[in-house]
């Protein structure tokens, strides 16, 4: 998945007007700023901490999904948004970090005993934590320098962990709700679709004679 704009699919793609990447970060942080603004002004409803915690987690998942949508969009619809993928992935990480900080500080009040018990005893917390831990090395190796240092292939292999993170994120969501409400199931279906597409695509490639070394 090493991304170079010179990839074959890129040029014939449907050309969208290019916007500066900084704008993606700018727009991406709007929900967080808005949430904190509303939270401080007591406009997040009766249970503001829980609202903030859930909303930040949901935005992390949405950005993770956006990151995973880049490749299928390019391969299936020739829409090339590759240059924004790093920004989207990092936004997913920053939202996951804010979500985690909200849990640690506002929800649990940094009660380490309670947090430790949660991590050990509650599968949804265990999975949530593990998902965050997976995202850390991906965020740390998101620079051009890291890609050069690691080499494209090793970097790409490491970054396939994002698939595991996506599965972890939806499981975490499903396990935290009562019964089977539609919203987490819809997100699970989207992630299944995005990962299933890759599986089918890679099986297809393996079946066909290779033209280029992998």
């Amino acid at each position: 998945m090493a991304e170079r704009a010179a990839a074959p699919g890129a040029r014939k793609g449907f050309s969208l007007p290019q916007v500066p990447k900084i704008l993606v970060y700018g727009v991406g942080f709007v929900p967080a700023v808005w949430l904190f603004y509303q939270g401080i002004n007591d406009r997040l409803g009766a249970d503001p901490m829980r609202y903030l915690e859930q909303a930040l987690g949901l935005w992390a998942l949405r950005f993770l999904i956006a990151t995973l949508a880049i490749t299928p969009l390019r391969q299936l619809f020739a829409v090339n948004l590759l240059r924004y993928r790093r920004a989207l992935g990092l936004l997913a990480f920053y939202y996951a970090l804010l979500h985690l900080l909200t849990y640690l500080v506002l929800d649990q009040g940094l009660d380490l005993a309670a947090i430790g018990a949660d991590i050990v005893k509650r599968p949804y917390i265990t999975i949530g934590m593990a998902t965050f831990v997976i995202l850390v090395p991906l965020a740390l190796t998101s620079t051009n320098a890291a890609i050069r240092r690691m080499g494209g292939q090793a970097w790409a292999r490491l970054h396939r962990l994002v698939y595991v993170a996506a599965i972890g994120a939806v499981l975490h969501f499903i396990l935290v709700v009562k019964s089977w409400p539609p919203e987490p199931l819809v997100y699970a279906a989207i992630v299944t679709g995005l990962l299933g597409y890759r599986l089918v695509h890679s099986l297809g490639r393996k079946a066909a004679p290779r033209r280029r070394p992998a």
């Binding site: 939270g39 401080i40 007591d42 997040l44 009766a46 249970d47 503001p48 901490m49 829980r50 903030l52 506002l106 309670a114 018990a117 949660d118 005893k121 509650r122 599968p123 949804y124 396990l175 935290v176």
Partner: peptide
């Protein structure tokens, strides 16, 4: 799936 040892009293402390 979660502890029942503590609770949040709605309307108490807002975000904090």
């Amino acid at each position: 799936r979660w502890s029942q040892a503590t609770e949040r009293r709605i309307g108490e402390g807002g975000l904090f």
